[in-house]
Design a protein around this nucleic acid. Structure first.
Lengths: 259, 259
DNA sequence: ATACAAAAATAACATATTATAACATTATTG
DNA sequence: CAATAATGTTATAATATGTTATTTTTGTAT
C-alpha cells in the first residue's frame, strides 16, 4: 500500500482549505496543485465519500454538521411580555420530581424556556418546538408524543398522539388556548389539536390554562371544553374587572400576574 | 457582483439577504449576481420549495417561520457512495400508495432523501432526522413514533415507540445495522434501538436490511435478530465472494448493487 | 364589472459549463 | 521488472444558464 503518497497530502490540503472556508472551483484547485481537473474531481469525490465535504455542481463546501431543522409557520407571537409573566407564574407550581405535560402554543413555549435549567423533571409534549428547546437540558427527560407531522405545523396530533397519552398519568398539565369565551369555553384554531387538548386534561391530576388576556372573549373554530375542568386559569393583569367577574361565575380559580 | 458565482453559493447569499430583511426584485438580484433573470427565478423557486422564502408576484419575502433545530452529535458518515447506491436500489421496491417504515441509520437516511419527491406515500419513522427531511414533501405523510428523546440522539425509543408500532401494519420496512455477523446476526450499537428494530420487523410484511459491505463481519453491543427474518439484504458490490457465500447459507436473499 | 396594457412569471428550447466514465499513460513499489 | 496505484486524455452525460415566446398576474381606465 502506498504510504504517505503525494495524492494523500494533496487531499488533506484541499480538505483543510475548504474547511477553512475558502471557496474554490475545480479548475482553480487544479492549477494550484498543478494537476489535471480530473484528478481534483477524484480527490473531491474521495473526500466526499469519507464524509468530509459536500460537493455541489461547480463548487465544494465543508460537510455541514448533521443538524435537523424543523421549520414552522410562525404565528405572530404578540404580547410576549404577558406570556412570559404568565409562564413565570406557572413555573411556581412545578416541583422537582414532577411529571408534567406541556401542550402546544406560544405561551407554553415560554414555559419550556424557563424549564431548561430545571432539575429532575419529566416533560411529555406533543410539540416539537418544546422538545427542541428541552433536548439538551440535563435535568429534564423529554417524551415526545407520536403522531402525524403536519406540514408547517410543529405539533403532533391524531389517533397516535391520543393513544400515547393513554400510557401516561402526570401531575400537572399546562395548556394554552386560541380563544376563551366569557362562559369559560375553550377554543382551538385547529380541530385536531382540540382533541389532543381534551385528552391531555384527562391524563393530568391538575391542568393549568395559560393565556394572555387578549384571548378572552374570543372564539375560534373548535371548542375543546371549559375552564371549569382546569385547576386554575393564569392570565395577565390587563383583564377587565367585568370579564374577570364573568369568568369567576364559572367557578374557575383565576390567577392574575402583573406585567 | 463582478464574477459569476457558484449556484449554491448564490442561493445561500440570496436567502441570507432576504432573511436580513432586504427587499429585492428579480432584476435587481440578477444584476447583483451578474446572471439572467431566469436564473434568479429558478433560484427563488428552489428556495421557496425548501421553505425558506415566500414568493409574491414581483417580490420576495422571508418565509415567516420559526426554525427549531435538533442538533445531534454528527457521526460523519463514511461510504456515502455505497449508501446512496443501496438506497437507490431499495427505492425500486417502493410503489405509490405504499405504507412504509424507515428506521434509523445513515443508509436509511439516504433513502429518505430519495423519497422527498415521491407521491402518495405514508412513512412511519422513529427518526427525527427522517422526519425533518420529509416534513415539506407534499406527497409524503409522515408519522413520527413517540418516545423518549435521548440527548444527542435523533431517535425515539422506549416503550412508547414500541407501543405506537403496534398500532400500525405496513407493507415495507427498511432498516440498517451497525454490524452483521457472518452467520447473519444483526447488531446495533444501542440496546434500545435494537428493541425497536425487532418490533419494526414484526409490523411490516417485508423488511429490507440496508447496509454497506463494511459492516459485514462486524459485531456490536446488541443483537436484534438475524437476516433470515428479512425479505432481503441489500448491500454493495464490495462484499467478498466468501462472505456472500457464508451469508447465503442462512437462506437470505442478497441483493448486490454496483457502486 | 370588463377590457386592456404593463409587468412578471413560466415554459420550451438552445447553449455553455461542469461532472463522469472509459481507457491510455505515467509513476511508484516491492 | 511486473503489479499496482495515480494521473492524464478524450468522449459522453448531466447540470446550469441564457434566450425567446407564451401565459399569468396586476393595475388602470372604461
Amino acid at each position: 500500500m502506498a504510504q504517505k503518497s503525494i495524492s494523500h497530502e494533496r487531499q488533506n490540503a484541499i480538505c483543510r482549505m475548504i474547511k477553512a472556508g475558502e471557496v474554490f472551483d475545480v479548475s482553480r484547485l487544479a492549477k494550484k496543485f498543478n494537476v489535471s481537473d480530473m484528478t481534483i474531481h477524484r480527490d473531491l469525490n474521495k473526500l466526499q465519500n469519507q464524509g468530509h465535504i459536500t460537493r455541489t455542481h461547480g463548487g465544494v463546501m465543508p460537510a455541514e454538521r448533521m443538524e435537523f431543522e424543523f421549520d414552522f409557520a410562525a404565528r405572530r407571537s404578540a404580547n410576549k411580555k404577558a406570556k412570559n409573566a404568565i409562564a413565570k407564574k406557572a413555573l411556581e407550581f412545578i416541583k422537582p420530581g414532577s411529571k408534567i405535560i406541556i401542550d402546544t402554543g406560544t405561551t407554553t413555549l415560554e414555559l419550556a424556556y424557563l424549564l431548561k435549567d430545571f432539575s429532575d423533571l419529566t416533560v411529555i409534549t406533543p410539540s416539537l418546538a418544546v422538545a427542541s428547546i428541552l433536548q439538551f437540558s440535563a435535568g429534564v427527560q423529554t417524551v415526545l408524543l407520536g403522531g402525524i407531522l403536519r406540514k408547517g405545523s410543529p405539533d403532533l396530533t391524531g389517533v397516535v398522539a391520543e393513544k400515547v397519552l393513554d400510557m401516561f398519568m402526570v401531575d400537572l398539565a399546562f395548556q394554552g388556548a386560541d380563544g376563551i369565551g366569557l362562559n369559560g369555553e375553550l377554543f382551538n384554531a385547529d380541530m385536531r389539536i382540540a382533541k389532543v387538548d381534551q385528552k391531555i386534561r384527562r391524563r393530568a391530576q391538575k391542568t393549568y390554562i395559560l393565556s394572555d388576556s387578549s384571548k378572552i372573549g374570543r372564539t375560534d373554530l373548535a371548542s375543546n371544553g371549559t375552564l371549569s375542568e382546569a385547576e386554575a386559569f393564569i392570565t395577565d393583569s390587563n383583564i377587565t374587572k367585568e370579564r374577570m367577574a364573568e369568568l369567576e361565575k364559572t367557578g374557575t380559580k383565576i390567577i392574575i400576574c402583573k406585567i
